[in-house]
Design a protein around this nucleic acid. Structure first.
Lengths: 159, 159
DNA sequence: TATTGTTATACTCTATAACTATA
DNA sequence: TATAGTTATAGAGTATAACAATA
């Protein structure tokens, strides 16, 4: 099935927000873990990267530094990560996920995954394959554009 | 390619937030239209439905009545829709998109679509077909679960 | 008494502007 | 002077609780 850009863009704009709403409300309802989507993504990134700076997190999230700072603040306030000094550059910091943060991350991830997986139960294995394939394509398209956005933001900020 | 529920769920949880971030930031940067994603979705729904009640909007959006009320308030305050009385049931209201609202909706939709379409430029027509197919599957899965959520919310509220 | 919508309150997400400390 | 991070401020999204008006 060959499809125009416009057609696929229309579908994305219509369906992605619906799926997103569902993911968000599932995370919110998982009381034991209580992570929002941005918190979850931040925690997962810091956990994977082991000691990234704030800028690196902002870059990955596509957020401005102040927004990222607040996001991180919340996670630190709830004992899920800590700030540490950078060995050579004292302006920078290194973010580290605490054992408690790692545990919460795991609970949140597995719970949300289980919910999503259950919903995908009625979908054929082949259609699931199509979903995975589509996600791969989308990842390559949109992961790249994040960096661009980030640079633009930086540029706007300094005029 | 056959795929497990877990595998497809993992991909969704990883990629959907990234695409969503992009859609949101595109809408935000479109200064002439200045609609957030929920505002856009609300306006589009009300425009399509011609005169829905607040509850119907809440249902469609998967939001609680107070949240929906505020969302609608903002759109009304900016002259994009109006509240009208329901002919037979005086508790209800009918939401109507103003000509100005319809115009802004159109500007926002076409601008965001153009941006998304441009990003999908480097994708093959076949891969776009896969995206459209996947969106169709996801729509059927997640459009249904919204209603369930809504009922649960109502139920939670009244204990 | 149940339903529709609203107001009050509180939290998170996000931005821009202005600042501090370090390089 | 440029960079990393923070604080101040503000608007939007969202929830729960409490309420008013109508059925």
């Amino acid at each position: 099935m060959d499809v125009t850009q416009e057609e696929s863009a229309r579908e994305l704009l219509e369906v992605v927000p619906i799926v997103m709403r569902d993911i968000r409300s599932e995370m919110r309802s998982r009381r034991s873990a209580e992570l929002t989507v941005p918190q979850f993504r931040t925690l997962a990134f810091v956990n994977r990267k082991e000691g990234p700076s704030l800028s690196e997190v902002a870059d990955h999230m596509g957020l401005t530094p102040p927004s990222t700072c607040r996001l991180v603040d919340g996670l630190i306030a709830r004992g899920m990560m800590t700030r540490q000094g950078h060995p050579t550059d004292r302006r920078r910091l290194r973010l580290i996920v605490t054992p408690r943060g790692a545990k919460i991350l795991e609970i949140s991830r597995s719970g949300t995954l289980a919910c999503l997986a259950e919903k995908l139960n009625g979908v054929t294995a082949q259609d699931r394959g199509i979903i995975v394939k589509a996600m791969g394509v989308l990842r390559s398209v949109f992961a790249e554009s994040q960096r661009k956005n980030r640079r633009k933001v930086r540029w706007c900020m300094s005029q």
